[in-house]
Design a protein around this nucleic acid. Structure first.
Lengths: 226, 226
DNA sequence: CCTACCGATCGGTAGG
DNA sequence: CCTACCGATCGGTAGG
């Protein structure tokens, strides 16, 4: 039931046999400078994101996460100070990835119409939300209640950065009459419409992500019809 | 920190003194037929809704709920079979209230334009979401993950009833050209935009619920401008 | 990163 | 609806 971490290495059959001496187990380390700690840490993050998303933060056990990453129950705490820190890391990773993808997509429409720029923002947003490796952002959207205030503040800063990508585009659309609601409320309502899709979108159903993009644009700015 | 149940009766100072004989405590029961069980049950529901909303279901303790309703730790289980049953009752109560309010508001716009009918739906929806006693529906929107499949099925039926109030109005708007997105996706996106408002709406800020109604209508159907 | 474990908390119950 | 309690689980840690 806990989504097995797709690429979880070192599944550790847990035979209960007496452990062999440490140096004899597994293949030898290539070089002290080349430890795969980042790999294990990333496996924990992916497992945590999947479980936090499907069960919620409070209902997910650090033991669940450890098992999904092929570790023993105490091992997550070697990589993260607390369950809380794991949650924050998942969200931070999600926001950094989302920002990076939006920024990478920006130049493609920089010289085009505000409508085309909005299409780019909406499309990338849906891809981040519904595409592969898409557990991190939903966790951020639906579990921020469990953060402490410092963590929340740190994430708010990233979220402001993200929103600032939308504001000038919406302002231009508002100025041209294509967007009739006030820019601030329009941004909140539009992002809400997009974010809510994680609750109902089913990749196996008929509608595709591209269908969603077109529907959202038609709904918000009426497809070039001003 | 746990929102104190505003009207919690019987706050029980918990003095630790030996309890007086049962018949001597409190004012005498009016009549065996007139027990205030419904009152206590309602207090539990209100307390549970507030706590489930602010902390989430899994992070809320049945002891938290009991305390907020002025009871001892084991007492909620006199009224509800399990914590799960309490959650389901909160959601069911929320959906019944939302349906009742929408149905009561329908006649007022029945003979008016589809735009006016949509305004009525949106306005009532925001009131249910953001008005007084508005914890029940947010709990339903954000905690259904914690239901078992029978409970989820029962709620899905109520949600379908609710959505069926929107579909004919959206179909009429689509037919007239005022709504350009496909009806099904438009409904999902629009309700998402509205539902998301519980995450950011702050009654103490400048925007009012009426501002939200107007902004949403302007965004979705462009305010009579087709 | 594993083993073995602690202390605290939690949902739920018996019996009144 | 309260008292007193059980059994299980959980986050986290020491020590290697």
């Amino acid at each position: 039931m806990p989504a097995q971490a797709a690429t979880a290495p070192n599944p550790q059959p847990a035979t209960g046999l007496a452990p062999a001496p440490l140096r004899a187990r597994g293949r030898p380390r290539k070089t002290p400078l080349e430890r795969d700690d980042g790999n294990r840490r990333a496996a924990l993050l992916r497992a945590a994101a999947a479980l936090f998303r499907s069960q919620g933060f409070a209902a997910t056990t650090t033991r669940d996460i450890a098992a999904a990453a092929g570790m023993q129950s105490g091992s997550p705490f070697y990589h993260f100070k607390s369950k809380d820190a794991l949650l924050f890391a998942v969200m931070q990773e999600g926001m950094h990835a989302a920002l990076a993808r939006q920024r990478a997509a920006l130049p493609a429409t920089a010289n085009q119409s505000p409508q085309a720029q909005l299409r780019g923002l909406v499309q990338t947003h849906f891809q981040v939300l519904l595409g592969p490796d898409s557990d991190f952002i939903p966790v951020m959207l639906y579990e921020s209640r469990s953060l402490n205030s410092d963590q929340r503040a740190a994430l708010s800063a990233l979220q402001s950065d993200y929103e600032s990508l939308w504001t000038p585009v919406l302002a231009a659309l508002h100025a041209s009459g294509a967007l009739r609601a006030p820019v601030g409320l329009a941004r909140l309502l539009m992002l809400g419409a997009l974010n809510w899709s994680v609750q109902w979108f089913d990749a196996s159903k008929s509608a595709t992500v591209d269908d969603l993009v077109e529907a959202a644009l038609a709904l918000f700015v009426g497809e070039a019809a001003a």
